[in-house]
Amino acid sequence: MATNAASLATSSTPLATNARSFRRQHRIGRAVIYGSLFFMAAFYLMPLWVMITTSVKHLDEIYAGSFIGLPQQISFDAWRTAWSEACNGTACKGLKPYFINSLLLTIPAVIMSTGIGAINGYVITKWRFPGSNVIFGLLLFGCFLPFQAVILPMAQTLGILGLAGSLPGLVLVHTVYGIAFTTLFFRNYFVSIPDELVRAAKIDGAGFIRIFVSIMLPAALPIIVVSCIWQFTQIWNDYLFGASFTAGENAPITVALNNIVNVSMGRKEYNVDMAAAMIAALPTLFVYVVAGRYFVRGLTAGAVKG
């Protein structure tokens, strides 16, 4: 992967810098580039700005009509309420317990779906057998299934398996519907690893498992990052499956968030809503901001070379 890192580091689009007029043009060009980038960044930050300012405003201020704009007084009460006091039904423990549920659910589901995707991608690209491409096609079509349509049969299946209403059941559902995308990611990545490498290893006597563990996996780090980020975001932010296949104390954070935000009859506490939303988004924000660099690097390393 050194080559990728190197290409990232040295990447550039050199500009003609010979003539003086070019330099002037260059400077105007740079100004335009920076200008448009900052303009877009401002546009992209607008909702975040609204969310953050709202979360530190006093509720009366919001109801008085100040939805956008600076807060008169900054208070972090809403954040505390959202984390440890906000009510989800009669249980007023804030988002904390559901945050933990979501972690307990997302981490195994991400690991399992990524692991299975890696093995599938490996088989489909390096151990092709008659029909393996058809199987890949069948898997891939699963990406486009509208999930609203599978809730009821899935519920029946979980009932038969004895997993209804439990976190393991939800982990299973996310793993199952995650396989399609993770397989796609790994297949597209492994395609670019030369077959000769595998063939040589076979001649040296390495078997199916050894080749996977000692050749494919070490090379797959960037795509593992991509797959994990994608799956983490999808699963962490899922509401539909969470609301369908868990109940009460087992609910993931999005279900609790929805209950805090979607008050049917009664006063909406917008500042708490926004603080709760920010808290619910922290792990995914963290993943994107911290791992964003690796994300692009991982994609560079082959995911897009379908």
Partner: peptide, 15 residues
């Protein structure tokens, strides 16, 4: 307690 709010009760009906 199992509260499922929102969507004018549709979320709870779905659950």
């Amino acid at each position: 307690d199992s509260a499922v709010g929102g969507a004018n009760g549709a979320n709870a009906q779905q659950a």
